[in-house]
């Protein structure tokens, strides 16, 4: 057996950090790489009745942890990393009713917040993110520019974007570009 340290390489390790764009301080955007904890894709089996309650049981209790993005499709996310055994335990809980695809490395979470966050995101997506139409906890799988991503409102002025790992750096650059006129502070390392 070789002797080595199992080093985790964050998806945004090479992405740019710092303050960019307008110097104004009023409505700045904050962009933050979130911990590569867990992202579980849950897919309902055919004929499964409402699973919302059951799925909440495999989540970490955070009120925006469970994200519905289509019929019988959810992402369950959280900051904690889960072992294969822990995931297997959750899969057992859903057994027969839904399957879990491990996506903790396949999907990257980016936090985006600030007074202009809806306006900045509207440069990428056609989803109406107005607070009354898109309240806290609501998710939408949509195109941001050319990249498909899951947008979730996590607070009055904060959203989370979940994107394929391979596109994470490109999306990160896009989000900075979209935020330049408001000023943006980007933190690519957790």
């Amino acid at each position: 057996m070789v002797d080595f340290a199992l080093v985790h390489r964050p998806a945004l390790a090479g992405a740019k950090s710092g303050s960019f764009g307008a110097p104004a301080t009023g409505n700045r955007i904050t962009l933050a790489a979130l911990p590569e904890g867990h992202v579980l894709q849950v897919l309902a089996s055919k004929g499964s009745a409402s699973l919302e309650e059951l799925i909440r049981q495999i989540a970490d209790g955070n009120k925006t942890a469970v994200r519905a993005y289509g019929p019988g499709q959810w992402f369950v996310v959280g900051d904690a990393t889960l072992s294969p055994a822990e995931i297997a335990g959750k899969a057992a809980l859903l057994s027969g009713k839904a399957s879990i695809a491990e996506q903790s490395h396949g999907r990257i979470r980016i936090g985006m917040s600030g007074g202009s966050v809806e306006a900045a995101l509207a440069k990428g997506t056609a989803v109406d993110l107005d607070r009354t139409k898109f309240p806290v906890g609501r998710s939408a799988m949509t195109l941001i520019g050319h990249i498909s991503a899951l947008i979730t409102r996590t607070g009055d002025e904060s959203f989370e974007v979940v994107v394929l790992r391979g596109f994470a750096e490109s999306l990160w650059d896009e989000l900075i570009q979209m935020s330049l006129e408001f000023g943006v502070d980007a933190r690519a390392t957790v």
Binding site: G70, P71, Q73, A140, M141, T142, L143, S148
Partner: peptide, 8 residues
């Protein structure tokens, strides 16, 4: 196909 959305 809602390719970049719900994939239905």
């Amino acid at each position: 196909h809602h390719t970049s959305g719900c994939r239905r």
